[in-house]
C-alpha cells in the first residue's frame, strides 16, 4: 500500500505471464491436431447435398460437415437437410458424434469443415436438461417463457407433459424421467419450426415415449421438422436416417 507502483507491478507481471501461458495452452487444446488437419485437407471435395424436392427450401441444411475431436476424425462429409414436415433420425454407436453433430447444427459447436444454414428458429433439448437443482418444473417453464418472450399458459404445458404432480418439486428431487419431461416441455412454450433432440426417449417410461411421439407427430403436421439422435426404435415414421 505504501509503494503501490513497484511491488504490485512485479506481481502483475508474473501473474500476467502465467495467464498468457495458460491462454496459449487453452488455444492449443481447442485447435485440431496438426496431423488430423492434414488428414482433413486430403479429404475429397464436399459433395453437393441431394435435393429431394427442389421447390421447398430446407428449414435447416448442412453440407460437407467434418469434425475432429482430440486425435481422430469424428465424421466427415456429412450432408443433411430437413424440410417442412420431415423427421431425420441420427443413428450410430456411442461416441460416433451424434451429439456433436446436433451441437454443430444448433450453432453451439463450430465444425472443423463445412457449413450449416439455419433458415428458421430451432428448439434444443440436449442430454443435459438445463434444469437447476433448486428450480421446480413450473419455475423452469416460467423462466424460459419469460426469456423467450412468449405468453403460453405454463399450467397447460405442465398438464400436457404429465408434470402436474411434481410441478412444484425442486429439480434435485425429481426423477430422471421427470427432468427429461421438463426439458421436453420447453418445446411447447414457443412454436419453432426446427426441433433438435438429443436422445429424447432417455429415462422416459412407456407413456413418456408415447408422449414424445405424439408431440413430434403434431409438430410435423403443423409443418415443423425434427432432427433427433435416437438409439433403438423410433416411435414415429422417420423421413430419413443418417448413420454416423
Amino acid at each position: 500500500m505504501r509503494a503501490p507502483n513497484t511491488e504490485p507491478g512485479r506481481t502483475a507481471l508474473i501473474c500476467w505471464g502465467s495467464l498468457i501461458v495458460l491462454a496459449s495452452r487453452a488455444q492449443l487444446a481447442v485447435g485440431p491436431h496438426p496431423r488430423n488437419k492434414a488428414a482433413f485437407a486430403a479429404a475429397a471435395e464436399p459433395a453437393i447435398p441431394e435435393m429431394m424436392d427442389p421447390q421447398a427450401a430446407p428449414l435447416l441444411s448442412a453440407s460437407g460437415l467434418g469434425m475432429i475431436r482430440g486425435e481422430r476424425v469424428l465424421f466427415r462429409e456429412v450432408n443433411l437437410a430437413v424440410r417442412t414436415g420431415e423427421a431425420l433420425v441420427l443413428r450410430g454407436a456411442n461416441g460416433t458424434g451424434k451429439t456433436t453433430l446436433l451441437r454443430i447444427l444448433a450453432g453451439l459447436t463450430r465444425p472443423e469443415a463445412g457449413r450449416v444454414a439455419r433458415r428458421e428458429a430451432h428448439h434444443w433439448v440436449g442430454h443435459r436438461e438445463g434444469l437447476k437443482p433448486q428450480e421446480t418444473p413450473r419455475e423452469h417453464l416460467k423462466l424460459w417463457a419469460q426469456a423467450w418472450g412468449t405468453n403460453v399458459a405454463t399450467d397447460s404445458v405442465l398438464t400436457r407433459m404429465g408434470l402436474n404432480r411434481p410441478a412444484d418439486v425442486a429439480g434435485r428431487y425429481l426423477s430422471a424421467g421427470q427432468r427429461r419431461r421438463t426439458a421436453l416441455a420447453r418445446l411447447l412454450l414457443e412454436d419453432r419450426p426446427v426441433w433438435l433432440l438429443d436422445e429424447p426417449y432417455t429415462a422416459l417410461d412407456a407413456e413418456g415415449r408415447a408422449l414424445v411421439d405424439a408431440l413430434i407427430a403434431e409438430h410435423r403436421s403443423r409443418g415443423g421438422s425434427v432432427i433427433a439422435a435416437i438409439h433403438g426404435e423410433a416411435g414415429f415414421a422417420a423421413s430419413g436416417e443418417l448413420t454416423l
Binding site: 451441437r103 453451439l108 440436449g126 443435459r128 438445463g130 434444469l131 437447476k132 424460459w144 423467450w148 426439458a183
Partner: peptide, 10 residues
Amino acid sequence: DGTLDLWLQA
C-alpha cells in the same frame, strides 16, 4: 446442467 447451452441460444 446444460443451462449454458440454452443461454447461448437465447
